[in-house]
Design a protein around this nucleic acid. Structure first.
Length: 173
DNA sequence: GCCAACGTTGGC
DNA sequence: GCCAACGTTGGC
């Protein structure tokens, strides 16, 4: 079933919209790159970790909100909000020999890796730095703020999402 | 650039 | 199937 024809499955089930945090190194792909992309949309290619893949494949649904996070390069932190506009489908980079993400073990008839597509919604009024995520009450369990946290796709609770947006100055989040 | 944390690989 | 060695991530 083509994912585009599926309306928000969570909404149909009466399940509350989920929230996620996607990490990206801004010298590879920054939030501003997403804003400049056609329809401000991109396929989130290159996820090569099984737990992150499983989140994308099984739990990330149309309409879910995504916090866009810049890793590695200052200012490290949450920079923008996006929305899932296409659910899991094969990540084309796994079959592209020229791609950094090429995976020779993955076969087109049984793709190992999936991507979702996200569209930019709005940049945060200010970056919420990692240090602040670590020190803010209510974010003690935020996955990305845990020591040694490396997963590039992590769940965020509705409360955590609200708190992070309010830290950025979006009062009515 | 260092290195702690953690995921993956492969010998046995 | 264990686990040591190795590779990668990402904060600092």
């Amino acid at each position: 079933m083509p994912s585009q024809t599926v309306s928000n499955e969570n909404a149909e089930l009466g399940v509350e919209r989920r929230y996620w945090l996607f990490k990206s190194e801004p010298d590879v792909f920054a939030y501003t790159d997403l804003e400049r992309a056609p329809q401000q949309t991109t396929g989130w290619e290159g996820v090569r970790n099984y737990l992150a893949r499983n989140y994308l494949r099984d739990l990330v649904k149309l309409g879910d909100r995504v916090l866009f996070y810049h890793s590695r390069i200052e200012p490290i932190g949450v920079v923008g909000v996006c929305e899932v506009v296409k659910e899991a489908h094969p990540d084309p980079s796994q079959f592209d020999v020229a791609s950094h993400y090429y995976d020779p073990k993955s076969k087109p008839e049984a793709p190992t890796w999936v991507q979702v597509s996200i569209q930019a919604r709005f940049p945060l009024k200010r970056v919420v730095p990692l240090a602040e995520l670590k020190s803010t009450p209510g974010l003690e369990k935020l996955v990305v703020a845990q020591k040694g946290s490396r997963l590039s796709i992590t769940p965020v609770t509705p409360d955590e999402f609200r708190i992070i947006l309010s830290l950025a100055g979006h009062a009515d989040a």
